[in-house]
Amino acid sequence: KRLSEREFDPDIHCGVIDLDTKKPCTRSLTCKTHSLTQRRAVQGRRKRFDVLLAEHKNKTR
């Protein structure tokens, strides 16, 4: 699936709103397109961004 077609989940996706499409970014939490500050500011996550990021990195090892 293309990035734009993915169902957005704030707990596994970057989530920064794309200015062109007005939709949240569906790249992983480790997205290189958006800064850490931008990704931390995303609302609606179950846990703090840093906790989710650490969990994500542990899963992908």
Rank of each mutant, 00 (worst) to 15 (best):
S4Q: 14
E5S: 12
E5R: 06
E5D: 10
E5V: 12
R6C: 07
E7K: 13
F8H: 04
D9V: 06
D9A: 05
D9G: 03
P10N: 04
D11W: 03
D11L: 06
D11Y: 04
I12C: 15
I12E: 09
I12S: 13
I12L: 12
I12W: 10
H13D: 05
H13N: 08
C14M: 01
C14V: 00
C14H: 00
C14E: 00
C14S: 00
G15P: 00
G15M: 06
V16A: 04
I17D: 02
I17T: 14
I17M: 15
I17V: 12
I17P: 12
I17W: 10
L19M: 12
T21F: 06
T21S: 14
K22N: 14
K23I: 09
K23L: 11
P24V: 07
P24N: 05
P24Q: 08
P24S: 05
C25F: 02
T26K: 14
T26C: 11
R27D: 13
R27K: 13
R27P: 00
S28E: 10
L29R: 01
L29Q: 01
L29F: 06
L29C: 02
T30K: 10
C31A: 00
C31D: 00
K32H: 11
T33C: 09
T33W: 10
H34A: 00
S35M: 04
S35V: 03
L36Y: 09
L36E: 12
R39M: 06
R40Y: 04
A41E: 13
A41G: 10
Q43I: 06
Q43E: 13
G44W: 03
R45Q: 03
R45W: 01
R45A: 02
R46H: 04
R48E: 15
R48W: 07
R48H: 15
R48V: 15
F49N: 03
D50V: 03
D50I: 02
D50Y: 02
V51I: 11
V51W: 11
L52D: 03
L52N: 02
L53R: 02
L53C: 06
A54T: 12
A54P: 03
E55C: 04
H56V: 11
K57R: 14
K57D: 15
N58H: 09
K59G: 14
T60P: 14
T60D: 14
